[in-house]
């Protein structure tokens, strides 16, 4: 039982990060902290994907000689490249999200002079 829990440490790690990120997004009042928490949340998922592609002792998935298709490559010897490729895209998406969020934060700061959620909501209410 314990052995099994330990052997899936990667899942524990990502679950911890996920919960940490979620907690930050919900509980923190500062918008930048919220953004950081969101990044943690996203990275948790990226780690999750990366870890499922990895194999102990796996090789890079490039066949040495091109064209010799009869040389059957054993899949267990290679790292699964697909999750990693997917995560390249996901990282791009994550960077884009962060970029937009930073731009928004900048504009929010210029308009309200503050990054605290409570303060901004208070001002919004004042303005009707």
């Amino acid at each position: 039982m314990f052995q099994q829990l330990l052997s899936h440490y990667n899942y524990w790690f990502y679950a911890l990060m996920l919960v940490l990120g979620l907690y930050g997004m919900i509980s923190k009042g500062n918008l930048v902290k919220k953004l950081v928490a969101m990044n943690i949340f996203q990275w948790a998922i990226i780690f999750f994907f990366l870890s499922i592609g990895a194999k102990r002792g796996g090789d890079i998935p490039i066949l040495p000689e091109h064209g010799h298709m009869e040389v059957t490559a054993r899949a267990s010897e290679f790292v699964n490249p697909l999750p990693h490729v997917l995560m390249l895209t996901a990282i791009v998406v994550g960077v884009a999200t962060t970029g937009i969020a930073l731009a928004l934060i900048l504009r929010i700061y210029r308009r309200w002079g503050s990054l605290e959620e409570d303060e901004i909501i208070g001002r919004l209410k004042e303005n009707g």
Binding site: L31, R111, I120
Partner: peptide
């Protein structure tokens, strides 16, 4: 203050 709501939407 649309930026603020956009940020919330983003999160």
């Amino acid at each position: 203050g649309a930026e603020f709501f956009a940020f919330r939407y983003l999160i």
